[in-house]
Amino acid sequence: MPDDKTLRIVIVDQNPLRTAILRDGLREGGPVQVIVVDTFLDLEQRLRALDADIVLIDLENPNRDVLEQMISASGAETRPVAMFADASDAAMINAAIDAGVSAYVVDGLKKERVKNIVDLTVSRFNAFARLREELAAAQCQLADRKAIDQAKGLVMKSKTISEEQAYAMMRKVAINEGKRIAEIARSILTAAEFLR
């Protein structure tokens, strides 16, 4: 049984950060050899040469269809590869697709071991997605604050009022129009640009 040896896991993903997060996770989970393929071309030959036990591929990679071909054409010289298509795996497959990853596994691996690896992959993919969201939110916040400060400055100058008064005015307009202060600030900046 291949379960007793170190598993060869191939990650097909072009995102270096996500790959690093996943690789660390897989290594913590047990004895595995992790190989990363970050190029798009000639995937079938590369994978055959790597002789993987498990292939993890992100769903944005069009090469998933190459793996489908490798499953359907498992001839004598090719290694049988099968995606777990068992009905009992439905929840696991659902979680994986939802997280944006798919796994292809050779026949004969112990189910629990595969499940552990897939669960870990799903959690790392989700962690990466959260990280990306947080980063995007932080960048958005920063941009909002910058726009609000700039608009406040413009209002202070054109109306010769204090910073607090300018902010209070913008806040009032935002509440009346049911918008965010940052949106009002951007409207002020656009209008100012226009009238300059």
């Binding site: 769903l59 944005e60 990679n61 069009p62 998933r64 489908e68 497959i93 659902n94 697709i97």
Partner: peptide, 15 residues
Amino acid sequence: EASWANLRDKLALGI
């Protein structure tokens, strides 16, 4: 979407 396999799976899973 990026692949036929994605389309098939997302349809099967109701995504």
